[in-house]
Simulated scan of single mutants.
Amino acid sequence: MAEITELIETDAGTARITWHKARKASLVLAVSHGAGGGIEARDLQALARVLPGHGVTVALVEQPWRVAGKKVAPAPKTLDVGWRGLWPAVAKAGLPVIAGGRSAGARGACRTATELGAAAVLALSFPLHPPGKPEKSRADELLGAGVPTLVVQGGNDPFGKPEEFPNGSYELVEVPYGDHGFAVPKRAPLGQEQALAIITDRVVEWTASLG
């Protein structure tokens, strides 16, 4: 199905949603990018390709700073303003909405999930801490999501390896050898397409379980 692009005005500026719609949707996954890239990220594109065939409409969200062509993301509070402002657009169909994001987007999804009435949270490459600074933990954001949460984390993510995550009421799936962008080394026994399939297969299972 063809992509549909929609511009949404928020108090943080103009956001953009690229819709990948399921024919008979039972859920919407609204998922945003991180602070260092956009919706071209390999995991976001893979989810947009696969999930609509399983009854999940995917809304790829570009925060206002990306739409405006800026290179550096604003502070988390500003990211949350943009996310709140576009939420009515992803919820307008009346379907349950999963709040999703990668990296900084995952943090924002966790921070606002309960407030916005999200059905669940999908946290891709959750940045548990800055690289090399495990003492600066952001675990409270993840643990405070308040809704069913799935974390998908690369086995070699410098922002937090799977074994560093605290116990909590969320599920965690590891992508072996994956870095923060889920890239795997060429010498790894797991190929890039296999790595992406781990992500999409598990998210398909998880979204089905939410119904």
Rank of each mutant, 00 (worst) to 15 (best):
R102F: 00
A25E: 14
W83M: 10
P64H: 04
P131R: 06
G53M: 05
L124T: 01
H54P: 05
A25Q: 13
V67S: 00
G101S: 08
V28G: 07
T18N: 00
E62A: 12
A120S: 06
R66Y: 00
H20M: 02
A106P: 01
W65C: 12
R49C: 10
A30R: 08
L51A: 01
D43K: 12
G85D: 11
V97Y: 10
A48D: 07
T114M: 03
G100P: 04
V50D: 07
L86V: 15
G34C: 05
G85W: 13
G53E: 14
W87Y: 08
P88W: 11
V67G: 08
G132M: 14
G34H: 11
V90N: 02
S125M: 03
A30K: 04
P64L: 02
L47N: 07
R107N: 01
A59V: 08
G132Q: 12
L27A: 13
G82N: 03
S26W: 12
L60C: 11
A93Y: 02
A104K: 05
Q63A: 13
V97M: 00
V97I: 04
K70C: 11
W19C: 05
A99I: 02
R42D: 12
V61R: 09
K71L: 12
W83G: 07
D43P: 14
K92T: 15
A113R: 06
T14S: 11
A75Y: 06
A91Q: 13
A104T: 06
